[in-house]
Structures are given as structure tokens and as C-alpha cells.
Amino acid sequence: MPGLLRIIIPAGALVASAVLVWLAWLQPYLAEQDVLKLGHGDYSLIGTDGQPFTAARLQGAPSAVFFGFTHCPEVCPTTLGDIAVWQDELGDAASDLRVFFVTVDPERDTTEMLGDYVGWVPGVVGVTGDAAEIRAAEKAFRIYSRKIPLSDGEYTMDHSALVLLFDDNGRFVEPIGYQEDLDRALAKLRRLLS
């Protein structure tokens, strides 16, 4: 028995230290790798500006990407209004920033519908496409969405409400949270655009 314990204890210690290494180093490392992949992947959508929207579109200039839908009661209009305020506050510095509003509701959000909806905020491009391609984009950006049936034949969409910021190499930098403090949001944008 003592012989067996002599094996079990070091074996246990080995497992424990392996777990510690995983938690302390490997897991955050892998998570970071995943974060760097945000927005990358195979999806092919269309913008209200007539240009395709694929992972390649994130290259070349900094972007802010938000997922939402036109039948959204509160979060999407608020975020669009916030984006208009950011642009106003940033002035010329914002001219480099591209803003994409990707629908989680391709069933209702046609290009026309989206174009009219985002059109009043300068430079915001609405993005839609086939449902399967939208799902692929959600996966690439790690966006959660779910269709929720309502009465009267209506439905709504639960969805992630972060504005995701990408640098001019198409690399994810950081998110701006829903109704994040204006000064903090502007600081993030100024960092991105500097």
C-alpha cells in the first residue's frame, strides 16, 4: 500500500500542476488566440453600399461592427444614436472609421429596409444576406442571437449588443459596451484612430 501511495501522490501532484499550468497560462493564451480571430472566417454578405461584406472588408481602415435589427425597440436605435454622437464628438478624426450594422434578422431586414434605417447616420453601412451566411458571420464575431416568438405572429431577436472595434489590419482591438460612458467610448475610439 505505501508503495502505491508513493506513486499516487506524485501523480496527483503532477495532475494538479498540469491543471495549474492550463489555468494560469494555456487557457488565457488560447482565449487570446480566439479573440485575435474575431471577425475572421468564412461568411459572405452584402452591404447597403452595394459592396460585399466578408472578413476581407475589415482590412484597410479601422471599423466598428455592431449586430442588431431594425425591429429592435431600444438597444439598436440607442446605439445608432450613440454612434452619431461619437462621430460628432470625434469630428474629422472619425472620417477614417467605418461602421457596419450587421442584421441578426435577415428575414425582415432586406438591403432596402436596412439602408433606410441606418442611412441617417453618416457612413454607417447596413449588412445583410442569406440567413446561413448571417449565422456564419455571427459565429465569426461570436455574436449570440436567438429568435423569440411573440403573439400576433410577431417575433423579436435577443442579441449581443457590443460594438466591436477592429484596427486597420482587421484585428479585433476591444469592444464598446452598450451605453458605455461617453468619455470612455471616445477614449477607445481615439486610441483606435490614432
Partner: peptide
């Protein structure tokens, strides 16, 4: 309709 919305973490939910 009569609805309730909430933010759960970073997700908007409405019922």
C-alpha cells in the same frame, strides 16, 4: 404588446 426587456451581460433580451 406589453413587454419587458433587459440586458443580460452584454445581450439584449425581450419578452
Amino acid at each position: 404588446q406589453i413587454h419587458e426587456m433587459a440586458m443580460q451581460d452584454d445581450t439584449m433580451v425581450m419578452r
